[in-house]
Design a protein around this nucleic acid. Structure first.
Lengths: 213, 213
DNA sequence: TAGATTGTTAATCGATTAACAATC
DNA sequence: TAGATTGTTAATCGATTAACAATC
């Protein structure tokens, strides 16, 4: 497999296709067209065709794709096949919310343990995931070859946690703390930025209310 | 004020500038340069200069901006001045996490009430916010002129909640349910899409692990 | 003055959309 | 066959980055 580089935006849309294909009735039509997918997801049909062409070669004019084959190809591409183990650090409200989120395994991610500095939490379970003392973070990551870390600690602790994760071999970090993490070049940090979203919402409202006058 | 249209990406970066400017020591330098901001946030300096020029005219060569004036201009632009009231629907784990998030008021958003269909929750408080029966959603939105709604209900209920919000005058919806909401053209829906983020993480890992071989 | 920093114009880049030939 | 659907090439669009003159 080539470490081929598809456009980032395409990559982000692939899970939408997976979700839609899975939502189709099992006893429905055998085939699905890019046009139909585009229609259902309110996307441009050329865009969908291009996306699909990048990860599958099963498309046939007039017929479309065999639904199950297409689904397989996309999941294959995304690497959903082999489930990835992840750790979550920080079992505050947001951490708990993520732990309770049922959808992760569907996307090939399994949170094998959660960590917190509060010693009274050690040994407890949150939504079925064991909480361990933060001191054990590095050990467990190394021992289990963990490559993905989710950071849901307060801003003040985020960089320290990040450093520990990186030092323990983690290569991808999903950061929910509102801070810019410093990492080596080979480590990917994905920031979930609520403030940016709020700015977009807020501005839209300003404009709507202004124009309404 | 014009309903001027700055680039979406600029809009998303503005909160980062606000946060950084607020983090500076009160007794520090009076001025700040776009160059310094860019450096601190790991952004391109031309990009920052362009962003700032769009919302402030206080920049002076060799000197930069007066920190407090710049902060005021950005916040002014974002409309953080007048706090916006919002409602949150669905007090599951994610809803609770958002309610506990202290940062909203900082961005001009105040969640005035939360709603849930579970009648046993009615009248309780979650992190200081009152939980009301979902039946009262429409009434309260209309009465309080609520323009922003946050949806943290399961996918199956999301569209129904969305319809109620829109019918009650809400113009901006922050959707955490993994579904595409149908709304009139003047309503903005901002989707918080965890699956897309996971796809990006997952792919990066594939490549890292592949290349490492 | 010298040079750091601004704002702006032009070039580049990445993604979307339009146009269209190929094909089942 | 006719026409729906594919994949691809070209045009457009939006954002980033480079180059540079203006200025304090």
């Amino acid at each position: 497999m080539q470490p081929s580089s598809i456009p980032l935006q395409t990559l982000k849309r692939l899970p939408l296709y997976v979700k839609y294909l899975k939502s189709l009735p099992q006893n429905g039509a055998l085939n699905i067209s890019a046009t139909a997918i585009a229609e259902a997801l309110s996307l441009n049909s050329v865009q969908v065709r291009k996306d699909l062409a990048l990860v599958s070669s099963g498309g046939r004019p007039r017929i479309g794709y065999i639904t199950q084959d297409l689904l397989f190809d996309i999941e294959q591409y995304l690497g959903y096949g082999d489930t990835r183990s992840a750790v979550l650090v920080g079992t505050g409200n947001l951490g708990k919310a993520l732990l309770s989120y049922k959808g992760f395994s569907q996307y090939g991610l399994e949170i094998v343990a959660a960590f917190d500095t509060d010693p009274t939490l050690a040994g407890t379970f949150v939504h079925g995931t064991r909480v361990l003392n933060a001191q054990k973070l590095s050990d467990l990551c190394k021992r289990m070859n963990i490559r993905t870390g989710i950071i849901t600690v307060p801003e003040s602790a985020a960089q320290r946690v990040c450093d520990t994760l990186v030092e323990s071999g983690v290569l991808a970090i999903w950061n929910f703390a509102p801070t810019k993490l410093k990492v080596p070049q080979n480590v990917l940090v994905l920031n979930e930025n609520m403030a940016s979203s709020l700015a977009v919402l807020s501005k839209h409202l300003n404009e709507q209310l202004y124009e309404a006058k």
